[in-house]
Design a protein around this nucleic acid. Structure first.
Length: 149
DNA sequence: GCCAACGTTGGC
DNA sequence: GCCAACGTTGGC
Protein backbone atom coordinates (compact mmCIF):
# COMPACT_ATOMS: atom_id res chain seq x y z
CA UNK A 1 0.00 0.00 0.00
CA UNK A 2 1.29 3.39 -0.96
CA UNK A 3 0.58 6.82 0.43
CA UNK A 4 -0.12 10.03 -1.44
CA UNK A 5 -0.94 13.60 -0.57
CA UNK A 6 -3.80 15.39 -2.30
CA UNK A 7 -4.21 19.14 -2.08
CA UNK A 8 -7.49 20.93 -2.10
CA UNK A 9 -8.74 24.44 -1.58
CA UNK A 10 -11.20 23.96 1.30
CA UNK A 11 -13.55 26.68 0.10
CA UNK A 12 -14.02 24.62 -3.05
CA UNK A 13 -13.92 21.07 -1.73
CA UNK A 14 -12.80 20.33 1.81
CA UNK A 15 -12.46 17.15 3.83
CA UNK A 16 -15.79 18.09 5.46
CA UNK A 17 -17.39 17.92 2.04
CA UNK A 18 -15.95 14.43 1.57
CA UNK A 19 -17.37 13.38 4.93
CA UNK A 20 -20.74 14.76 3.91
CA UNK A 21 -20.60 13.04 0.51
CA UNK A 22 -19.22 9.75 1.94
CA UNK A 23 -17.25 9.35 -1.28
CA UNK A 24 -16.13 11.45 -4.20
CA UNK A 25 -14.30 11.26 -7.48
CA UNK A 26 -11.14 13.34 -7.39
CA UNK A 27 -11.15 15.16 -10.71
CA UNK A 28 -9.57 18.14 -12.36
CA UNK A 29 -5.89 17.30 -11.89
CA UNK A 30 -4.24 18.92 -14.89
CA UNK A 31 -0.63 19.40 -13.90
CA UNK A 32 1.51 16.76 -15.65
CA UNK A 33 3.61 15.93 -12.59
CA UNK A 34 0.48 15.61 -10.49
CA UNK A 35 -1.07 13.33 -13.09
CA UNK A 36 1.98 11.08 -13.03
CA UNK A 37 1.46 10.64 -9.29
CA UNK A 38 -2.31 10.25 -9.59
CA UNK A 39 -1.94 7.43 -12.14
CA UNK A 40 -0.03 5.43 -9.53
CA UNK A 41 -2.86 5.42 -6.98
CA UNK A 42 -4.27 1.98 -6.21
CA UNK A 43 -7.35 0.91 -4.34
CA UNK A 44 -6.64 0.88 -0.61
CA UNK A 45 -3.89 3.48 -0.74
CA UNK A 46 -3.70 6.04 2.05
CA UNK A 47 -4.42 9.60 0.94
CA UNK A 48 -3.38 12.52 3.11
CA UNK A 49 -5.60 15.55 2.61
CA UNK A 50 -3.93 18.97 2.57
CA UNK A 51 -5.91 22.20 2.71
CA UNK A 52 -4.36 25.14 0.85
CA UNK A 53 -5.19 28.82 1.32
CA UNK A 54 -5.73 29.97 4.87
CA UNK A 55 -5.17 26.56 6.46
CA UNK A 56 -1.98 25.26 4.87
CA UNK A 57 -1.97 21.99 6.75
CA UNK A 58 -2.53 18.26 6.39
CA UNK A 59 -5.89 17.99 8.09
CA UNK A 60 -7.15 14.47 7.51
CA UNK A 61 -6.74 11.20 5.74
CA UNK A 62 -8.80 9.34 3.22
CA UNK A 63 -8.46 6.12 1.29
CA UNK A 64 -8.61 5.25 -2.38
CA UNK A 65 -11.69 3.21 -3.21
CA UNK A 66 -10.47 2.52 -6.74
CA UNK A 67 -7.33 2.42 -8.76
CA UNK A 68 -6.76 5.50 -10.87
CA UNK A 69 -9.00 5.37 -13.92
CA UNK A 70 -9.88 7.54 -16.90
CA UNK A 71 -12.22 10.44 -16.26
CA UNK A 72 -15.42 9.39 -18.05
CA UNK A 73 -15.88 12.99 -19.16
CA UNK A 74 -12.49 12.92 -20.87
CA UNK A 75 -11.70 9.35 -21.86
CA UNK A 76 -8.66 8.32 -23.84
CA UNK A 77 -4.99 7.63 -23.59
CA UNK A 78 -2.02 9.90 -24.08
CA UNK A 79 0.74 9.21 -26.58
CA UNK A 80 2.46 6.96 -24.05
CA UNK A 81 -0.58 4.75 -23.71
CA UNK A 82 -1.45 6.06 -20.26
CA UNK A 83 -4.79 7.27 -19.04
CA UNK A 84 -4.79 10.88 -20.12
CA UNK A 85 -7.04 12.36 -17.43
CA UNK A 86 -6.77 10.11 -14.39
CA UNK A 87 -9.23 10.33 -11.51
CA UNK A 88 -9.71 8.22 -8.39
CA UNK A 89 -12.59 7.64 -5.98
CA UNK A 90 -12.01 8.47 -2.32
CA UNK A 91 -13.72 7.85 0.99
CA UNK A 92 -12.97 9.75 4.19
CA UNK A 93 -11.08 7.93 6.95
CA UNK A 94 -10.58 10.43 9.73
CA UNK A 95 -10.15 14.06 10.53
CA UNK A 96 -6.92 14.53 12.42
CA UNK A 97 -7.10 15.85 15.96
CA UNK A 98 -4.27 18.23 15.16
CA UNK A 99 -3.27 19.13 11.61
CA UNK A 100 0.36 19.09 10.54
CA UNK A 101 1.03 22.60 9.36
CA UNK A 102 3.10 23.48 6.35
CA UNK A 103 5.33 25.46 8.69
CA UNK A 104 6.01 22.33 10.73
CA UNK A 105 6.71 20.32 7.59
CA UNK A 106 9.03 22.99 6.21
CA UNK A 107 10.94 23.23 9.44
CA UNK A 108 11.72 19.51 9.54
CA UNK A 109 14.99 18.79 7.70
CA UNK A 110 13.91 15.20 7.06
CA UNK A 111 11.14 16.53 4.80
CA UNK A 112 13.25 18.88 2.72
CA UNK A 113 12.72 16.72 -0.39
CA UNK A 114 8.98 16.32 0.10
CA UNK A 115 6.97 17.56 -2.88
CA UNK A 116 4.94 19.88 -0.69
CA UNK A 117 8.11 21.73 0.21
CA UNK A 118 9.98 21.44 -3.07
CA UNK A 119 7.20 22.29 -5.50
CA UNK A 120 4.47 24.33 -3.93
CA UNK A 121 2.18 24.12 -6.95
CA UNK A 122 2.10 20.32 -7.08
CA UNK A 123 -1.39 19.13 -6.20
CA UNK A 124 -0.92 15.35 -6.06
CA UNK A 125 2.32 13.79 -4.88
CA UNK A 126 3.67 10.52 -3.54
CA UNK A 127 4.65 10.26 0.12
CA UNK A 128 7.66 7.98 0.49
CA UNK A 129 7.72 5.44 3.33
CA UNK A 130 10.43 7.51 5.03
CA UNK A 131 8.43 10.70 4.67
CA UNK A 132 5.34 8.96 5.98
CA UNK A 133 7.20 7.84 9.11
CA UNK A 134 8.18 11.44 9.79
CA UNK A 135 4.67 12.73 9.15
CA UNK A 136 3.18 10.06 11.42
CA UNK A 137 5.60 11.10 14.14
CA UNK A 138 4.72 14.77 13.71
CA UNK A 139 1.04 13.92 13.91
CA UNK A 140 1.20 11.80 17.04
CA UNK A 141 3.82 14.13 18.47
CA UNK A 142 1.51 17.12 18.42
CA UNK A 143 -1.30 15.11 19.96
CA UNK A 144 1.08 13.94 22.65
CA UNK A 145 2.09 17.49 23.41
CA UNK A 146 -1.52 18.46 23.74
CA UNK A 147 -2.29 15.71 26.20
CA UNK A 148 0.53 16.90 28.40
CA UNK A 149 -0.11 20.60 27.98
C1' DG B 1 11.57 23.15 -31.84
C1' DC B 2 12.62 27.76 -29.53
C1' DC B 3 11.33 31.01 -26.63
C1' DA B 4 8.74 35.28 -25.32
C1' DA B 5 4.52 36.36 -23.49
C1' DC B 6 0.97 35.08 -20.85
C1' DG B 7 -1.69 32.33 -17.34
C1' DT B 8 -2.06 29.78 -12.89
C1' DT B 9 -1.09 28.21 -8.29
C1' DG B 10 -0.39 28.98 -3.80
C1' DG B 11 2.69 30.80 -0.19
C1' DC B 12 3.88 35.12 1.76
C1' DG C 1 -2.15 42.11 -3.42
C1' DC C 2 2.29 40.50 -4.74
C1' DC C 3 5.28 37.52 -6.88
C1' DA C 4 8.13 33.13 -7.50
C1' DA C 5 7.85 29.09 -9.73
C1' DC C 6 6.11 26.74 -12.66
C1' DG C 7 2.91 25.49 -17.27
C1' DT C 8 1.02 26.65 -21.65
C1' DT C 9 0.49 28.93 -25.96
C1' DG C 10 1.58 30.62 -30.33
C1' DG C 11 4.55 33.15 -33.57
C1' DC C 12 8.55 32.39 -35.93
Amino acid sequence: MATFLFKTEPSEYSFAHLVRDKRCTWTGVSNPAARIALRQVKRGDRILIYHTGDEKAIVAEAKALTNAYADPAQPGLNDRGEVNFPVVDLAPVKLWATPITLAAIKSDARLKDFGLVKQSRLSVMPVSPQQEVVLNALSTGTKHNRIHA
